[in-house]
């Protein structure tokens, strides 16, 4: 494999991983905040329906 091709593949894989990581942990934090809200309120918050 030429260095140029390797560089492109590596950059692409890394960007996909970093974006995927951001989405995954973004959803985790969102879910956590939602569960936290649910634990503090009597009514069921809207966000629970989307989980």
């Amino acid at each position: 494999m030429t260095t140029n091709t390797l560089g492109k593949i590596a950059a692409l894989c890394s960007v996909v991983i970093i974006i995927g990581w951001g989405i995954y942990w973004g959803v985790q934090v969102q879910d956590t905040m939602c569960l936290l809200e649910a634990s503090e309120s009597i009514d069921m918050p809207e966000c629970l329906e989307n989980m």
């Binding site: 030429t2 260095t3 390797l6 560089g7 590596a10 950059a11 894989c13 890394s14 960007v15 991983i17 970093i18 990581w21 995954y24 942990w25």
Partner: peptide, 22 residues
Amino acid sequence: SDPVDAWVVKLVAVAHLFIWFS
């Protein structure tokens, strides 16, 4: 003679750290 760009190396390092953190 034929190195990869420095920014690609750093991007790979960050992505790799992110995976193992997860």
